[in-house]
Design a binder for these strands. Structure first.
Lengths: 151, 151
DNA sequence: CGGTATCCGACGAGATACTG
DNA sequence: CAGTATCTCGTCGGATACCG
């Protein structure tokens, strides 16, 4: 388990991730202020991870990206890309030509994020069967309880 | 980059995470059906990761959990715990005593998930400064553009 | 103590229409 | 082509009240 000593305890510490402490200002003393969760809020949304994944293969234009991801609306792709650009995860390059051309590329930092994300996906892949079994068992238990109640 | 050959292509394949293909039924052919994203939907929500983290240290009762997490409502803690229980990440143990006592424990699978999550948090920790810089730069650029437009 | 039930506001996200 | 603007609806999550 990772434990990071708080460098300036007088600012107050916040149990961010169990034993993983981080230092923060007291006025940020909310769960939303947890920096460790920020990255999950970024890639935990509906589209970010998929965008990062496809850009991990190669640079793409807006329309190519939209075609590649399948299901994303133009609006949400724009919103997602702006967020990723703001965080320095993708670079947006506009070519002043007609018709317009905009390329999106993963930054080096974005590539390292993709590596970390793949770890998570790997975990998911190797535990999917176990999760499905747990769900089936839980749902069976729940259904049984419900049936007893309605008698 | 991870590429998993689709075992039964006739069921249709779906580009789940860039080059990471998974097999799925055609009637699940939505982005939400992506199994790789399921785990992110689980721990990407507002409270799951924090619950997993504090349970990673030791078994806790409901009220202890609520005290430990700070900011979570009773409702959301219940909802979160039910979800984690259903997925086999935590175990809920009810002791038939008065007053009631309910213990929550991380399963072995939950512990491995915590390890994977810590990888992500580690990434976040080591890139926070870079992300903040990127945001500041982006916001500065945006503010500048806005100022020019309103002239 | 450890929940459930209900109400309600805020936000995420799709559909659609319009633009440089 | 690559967006922006607006509307709308569904879901998330907090507050509150009640229960075994």
């Amino acid at each position: 388990m990772v434990r990071i000593p708080a460098p300036s305890p007088q600012e107050g510490t916040f149990f961010c991730l169990g034993s993983l402490e981080i230092t923060m200002n007291l006025n940020e003393h909310t769960a939303a202020g947890c920096r460790g969760r920020e990255i999950l809020e970024r890639i935990g949304d509906k589209w970010s991870l998929q965008v990062i994944a496809v850009l991990g293969e190669r640079t793409l234009r807006f329309t190519e990206l939209k075609r590649e991801i399948e299901g994303v609306s133009q609006r949400m792709l724009t919103v997602t890309l702006r967020g990723l650009e703001r965080d320095g995860i993708v670079v947006r390059t506009v070519y002043p030509v007609v018709p317009p051309r905009v390329d999106y590329t993963l930054t080096p930092m974005g590539a390292t994020l993709l590596d970390a994300a793949i770890t998570m996906v790997g975990w998911a892949e190797s535990h999917l069967a176990e999760i499905d079994a747990a769900r089936a068992a839980y749902d069976a238990r729940t259904a049984e309880t419900e049936a007893l109640k309605s008698q």
